[in-house]
Every structure is written in structure tokens, then in C-alpha cells.
């Protein structure tokens, strides 16, 4: 019994210590005085790897989710004779929830795991240590640009996701199921509010971008530098950031829409 309590305590302490290390790493990476002329090319390069290369998966997933939403919405709403509301339903569920959340989950799987593996391999092959010995702070050179790239990319990817999703919903609803086009778009336009929906959705995407990238770079930076350690760290990135995204989504939704 005592052993069980001790083990729980040790586990808790280990988690807390890791959380503390993650916080210190983030602070040092963000406070490291940015040298804009050096930082900019690195940042652009990382935005390309993290953001641009995730575009295909984000667009394809957005399209299918929008199409499914249109189809499901239609089959329910048509029973009540209100199939014109499909546009409203597709747009609201995408902008408020699905675009930030699903984009963040896909981002964690596509870009987060790649970031962890890349940084972990740099650690294992002593590239981080050799940067330090050359007199360059790896937090500034490696971690900071990757972190900012993720933070900037995810909200943009979520926006692309939402736009493509709405287009997919419209394609199914209007072209295929024959909803009246004017009603579809007008309903959508009337019900989607900029500050209530679009802004809140963007805030969610920013928070998720922050959390997913933070988890990813920390897991890479803190991993055990062996092949087993890197594979575990990559798995942890996907698991932790997915759980964090879903949990935070509930908290944010409660804060934003709880009193509606």
C-alpha cells in the first residue's frame, strides 16, 4: 500500500518536473533575444515545412468533413422541411468546432510528430550539443523558429479547413441534393457572426497551435536520445497534444458559448 502511494507520488513528481522543464524551455526559447535578420529566413523555412506541407491533408480532410456534414445535416433537417438550414449548420459547426479541433488533431499527427522526431534526431546525433559548443543557443536557433512557425500556421490551416469544408458542404447540398442555392447561402450569412463565431474559432485555433507546437518541440528537446526514446517521444507528442486539444476545446467552448 505504502509502495503504491510512493509510486503515485514519484509519478506525480516526475510529471510535475517535466511540466516545469517544458515551461522553462518555452520561456528561454521565447525570451532569447530574437535577431530578426537571422530569425526570418529560419522562420519562413519552418512555416514551409510545418504549414505549407500540411496543406494537402488539411484541404482533403476539410472537403470530406464538409461533405459529410452536408449529407448528414440534410437527412435530418429534410424531415422537418428545413433543409435550407443545412448551410447554417455546416458553417457554424465548422467555424466554431470542427475546423480548429480537427485541423489541430491532424496538425499534431502530421507536423507535431515530425517536429518531435526531427529535434529528437538532432539531439541523438549530437547536433544540438555541437550547436551549443559552436556558441549558438539551440533554443534560439532550433526551438524558437519551429515554435513560432506552428503557432502562426495552425490558425491559417484551420481557416483553410473551414473554407474548404463550407465549399464541400455546398457542393453536396446544392449540386447533389438540390437545396435552393439562395436560401443555403443566405441562411449561412445571417447566422454566422464575425466576433461570436469566426473570432472565437480563431482564438481556439491559436490556443491549439500554441499547445500542440509546445508539446511537440518539448518532447523532441527532452527525449532520451536513442531510437527507442525518439519513437516514444513521437508517440507522446501525438497522444498528449490530441488530449490537450480535446480537453481545452471543452474549456474554451464553455467559456465562449456557455452563457448563450
Amino acid at each position: 500500500m505504502i509502495e503504491l502511494i510512493a509510486a503515485t507520488g514519484r509519478y506525480g513528481l516526475g510529471r510535475l518536473a517535466a511540466f516545469g522543464r517544458a515551461g522553462v524551455m518555452l520561456m528561454q526559447a521565447l525570451l532569447a533575444r530574437p535577431a530578426p535578420m537571422q530569425m526570418l529566413p529560419l522562420l519562413v523555412r519552418q512555416i514551409y515545412f510545418v504549414g505549407v506541407q500540411s496543406l494537402i491533408i488539411i484541404m482533403v480532410s476539410g472537403l470530406f468533413i464538409g461533405m459529410v456534414l452536408g449529407l448528414q445535416g440534410y437527412t435530418i433537417l429534410v424531415d422537418y422541411g428545413s433543409e435550407q438550414a443545412v448551410g447554417q449548420m455546416v458553417a457554424l459547426s465548422l467555424v466554431r468546432e470542427l475546423a480548429p479541433v480537427v485541423a489541430a488533431l491532424l496538425f499534431a499527427g502530421r507536423a507535431g510528430s515530425a517536429l518531435t522526431a526531427e529535434i529528437g534526431l538532432m539531439k541523438a546525433t549530437e547536433q544540438l550539443a555541437s550547436l551549443e559548443m559552436i556558441g549558438v543557443d539551440p533554443l534560439r536557433r532550433i526551438i524558437a523558429p519551429r515554435f513560432w512557425a506552428g503557432f502562426i500556421s495552425l490558425p491559417l490551416l484551420a481557416a483553410v479547413f473551414a473554407v474548404v469544408g463550407v465549399w464541400g458542404g455546398a457542393m453536396v447540398g446544392i449540386e447533389w441534393l438540390g437545396i435552393y442555392e439562395g436560401a443555403f447561402w443566405a441562411n449561412m450569412q445571417n447566422s454566422v457572426d464575425f466576433s461570436e463565431d469566426v473570432l472565437n474559432g480563431s482564438i481556439k485555433a491559436m490556443v491549439f497551435g500554441f499547445v500542440v507546437t509546445w508539446v511537440a518541440v518539448f518532447q523532441g528537446y527532452d527525449c532520451v536520445p536513442t531510437s527507442e526514446g525518439i519513437s516514444q517521444a513521437t508517440t507522446r507528442t501525438v497522444v498528449y497534444s490530441s488530449l490537450a486539444v480535446l480537453g481545452l476545446d471543452f474549456v474554451l467552448t464553455a467559456l465562449m458559448f456557455g452563457d448563450l
Binding site: 549530437e126 547536433q127 550539443a129 555541437s130 551549443e132 559548443m133
Partner: peptide, 14 residues
């Protein structure tokens, strides 16, 4: 560290 150079076991090239 700018005064030091180090050759790592693995080379550690970028």
C-alpha cells in the same frame, strides 16, 4: 565557447 572547438564522436554535422 567561442574560444573552444569540439570534434564530436559522430561528427555531428548539420
Amino acid at each position: 565557447r567561442e574560444r573552444m572547438g569540439m570534434l564530436f564522436q559522430s561528427g555531428a554535422l548539420f
